[in-house]
């Protein structure tokens, strides 16, 4: 499973990031700024340059969406936003959901792999004082381990919610436009489609890895419900190889449940 993917930011990347500065001076250009920023972030996300994508995201002031609506209402009254603007705003929210999901998975990953307290060692032939000191350290270790487990549960819940927030993105799914735009350039729709194919299976694998490592095996199996659902259509983003990998992971979780004397889906045996 892949953790933090932060490929180096090149000079060329930096130029793209800084170009956004020129577009945010004037609120009248904010809708264009969001579209340009989205396009740059799409490029970064496609090659997993998450740090670069985040820097672009932070170039856009927080109130950008409000400003776009305000300017629209002052010129066009109550008519709907132009399709291109509506889609750009939704895409911006999708990118935010993605960056949040990745960040929060990385937090979980480093907490799980690096923050776990280490069990103290007792060397063979230790003296009496060594043994007393060891028992003391052992007690400390156990209370630290308890705290770590407690925090792990909390972190797992946050990261799980963030990833599901992306996978089950409201009204039709992540990186799916809601309105048809007749002036849409084909490049953009193709990129959105590619990003779904690229990241949805990956995030499902990360989610499975996280739930499995945290011992939440029954929840691992329920991941199948969401992936197979006709409402979210996540399975369409899985190629046959991905599907086989997924089934192998689910099978691993089932075997763990059998070890716990449950049935393969985590229900009590009758």
């Amino acid at each position: 499973s892949d953790s933090a993917c932060n490929i180096e930011i090149t000079d060329e990347d930096r130029e793209k990031i800084e170009a956004i500065d020129w577009l945010v001076f004037d609120p009248k250009h904010r809708s264009e700024a969001v579209k340009q920023a989205n396009a740059v972030m799409r490029g970064f996300i496609a090659v997993k340059k998450h740090e670069a994508a985040k820097q672009v995201f932070h170039k856009l002031p927080n109130d950008s969406i409000d400003i776009i609506y305000k300017i629209h209402h002052s010129t066009a009254g109550h008519r709907n936003l132009k399709p291109a603007d509506e889609n750009a705003i939704r895409e911006y929210m999708c990118i935010k959901a993605y960056l949040d999901a990745v960040d929060s998975f990385n937090d979980w990953f480093s907490f799980f792999h690096h923050a776990k307290p280490q069990k103290p060692n007792l060397t063979v032939g230790a003296s009496f004082t060594d043994k007393v000191a060891y028992e003391h350290r052992m007690k400390q270790f156990e209370s630290e381990l308890d705290r770590w487990r407690h925090n792990l549960t909390a972190q797992t819940k946050i990261s799980k919610d963030r990833i599901y927030n992306l996978l089950l993105f409201t009204d039709g799914g992540w990186m799916v436009d809601l309105v048809q735009d007749s002036n849409e350039d084909e490049g953009r729709s193709l990129q959105l489609k590619r990003l779904r194919e690229l990241h949805i299976p990956g995030l499902c694998f990360n989610l499975h890895h996280m739930l499995h490592s945290s011992g939440l095996y029954a929840e691992c199996l329920q991941l199948a419900d969401y992936i197979a659902s006709e409402r979210y259509l996540l399975y369409k983003e899985f190629n046959p190889e991905n599907l086989k990998t997924l089934l192998r992971h689910l099978q691993d979780s089932s075997l763990q449940l059998l070890d716990e004397n449950k049935d393969p889906l985590g229900y009590d045996l009758v």
Binding site: Q222, A224, D225, A228, F238, P240, L243, L247, L265
Partner: peptide, 21 residues
């Protein structure tokens, strides 16, 4: 017995079918 269990069995059956080509 369990609707949720039936759902997961159906979902897994669908995913294995898709993997079977």
């Amino acid at each position: 017995t369990f609707a949720s269990k039936k759902k997961t069995l159906l979902s897994l059956s669908k995913l294995t079918a898709l993997a079977s080509d």
